[in-house]
Design a protein around this nucleic acid. Sequence first.
DNA 1: ATAAATAAAAATGTGCACATTTGGCACCGT
DNA 2: ACGGTGCCAAATGTGCACATTTTTATTTAT
Lengths: 229, 229
Amino acid sequence: MRRTPKSAPEIDERVYDRLSNALMEGKLRAGTKLAEHKLADALGVSRERVRKALHRLAADRRIDIIPNRGARVPSPSAEEIRAVYQAHRTLEAGVLLQLGTSLSEAMLASLEEHLRKERDAARANDRALSVRLSGEFHILLVDALDNEELSRFIRDLLSRSSIMVSLYEHAGHSACGVDEHAAIVDALRKGDPMSAVALSRDHFTHVQERLDFPETVSAPVNFEEIFQN
Amino acid sequence: MRRTPKSAPEIDERVYDRLSNALMEGKLRAGTKLAEHKLADALGVSRERVRKALHRLAADRRIDIIPNRGARVPSPSAEEIRAVYQAHRTLEAGVLLQLGTSLSEAMLASLEEHLRKERDAARANDRALSVRLSGEFHILLVDALDNEELSRFIRDLLSRSSIMVSLYEHAGHSACGVDEHAAIVDALRKGDPMSAVALSRDHFTHVQERLDFPETVSAPVNFEEIFQN
DNA sequence: ATAAATAAAAATGTGCACATTTGGCACCGT
DNA sequence: ACGGTGCCAAATGTGCACATTTTTATTTAT
């Protein structure tokens, strides 16, 4: 045992995580072919391990696998992107409605604490951080319901939209208005869930409006560079 | 080639479907061990095929897999069951709110057509059919939004609750009131989504109330018998 | 020169043999 | 009788060789 003996399941998890993160961070452009052998070399593991991770990602709908043709980073159509945001919008409406009747003071506090962080990031012009915090706001909302199923769904949607965001670089998903988030929290604090729902609706409309159209891309990629860490 | 040459992916799909159906129909009791070799024999395919299907089901959260310990039909706790219904309740609230602003006459018609089928099944005392139709009602609702993401989530929740229903045999998920479904459709027709949401909420509350407590079971099973068809 | 056909190369998919881990059982000592 | 220890059988996990399919490159014919 050289360094970390690492039991098998841990290796699997690590392979999956590295691929997952690369997708999240937009390091793998849409359309990129994910060849098993090349990834295995880049990650320093056996092809079977990569295989498993790819199939897992496919089950999560994070990548596309076509039988006998391999795996690719999806290039979602404008329509599919719209569907993901629409789903999030609909789901959050349900969440906010539910929260209206059961939102503790402590949770309101942690929401407001989060808003502060968002404002700081916006003021510091830290785009990457802003994007992350902006997503976490919506996670915080659903987590407040303490329902694992719902939280999973939202995380699912966010992990998929992250790919989309990277497709449309300039689109300021980052600019995902802090003020609009704040308005939602305000409505909740005032015990007015219907307003919160309406505000959330508007918010998603704005986010969607900022999304522009796709340029289909398919460039060669240096996996070693991406996974060198 | 004896009968159906069946290309490989078709076989995979069939294995998955047969296991999936057995779970849906409650033929595999909670706690049942799903040994790879035994299932392979019963289904007449290689162990690897079963393996793949089991991992797929695990990714769907339809079964539990513990590393090096194999797969089992889950025995969800009362708390987990509550969470699934709660999630469905919350999600459907969002769906109904959204439907309020965009429900075509054609869809209302197909909903009412469905209600008729439900009533027929209830009158005929066909429990199995009633259960199935009752679930399909909620699928019909979300499908009306024509959003694949949302439809997937609902199907996900339903496939998981089916295991739970079979855990509590007597619990009349079947009795999932036809009248309550009808009331929801009525509210939608009247263009009163808030009432629809409230009715849906009550509906889920009633369904949950009918669920009783678990008896932990773990009996030996004859796979050949279950999969003989 | 274009297109069809064919052959070679590369990538994915599969079964099997073997390694690893787990669970049960007998044995032993207290 | 009880709890612990070690061994054996059984089940899961993994790497590898080979089969199948797709893609690319080359040749040939019109």
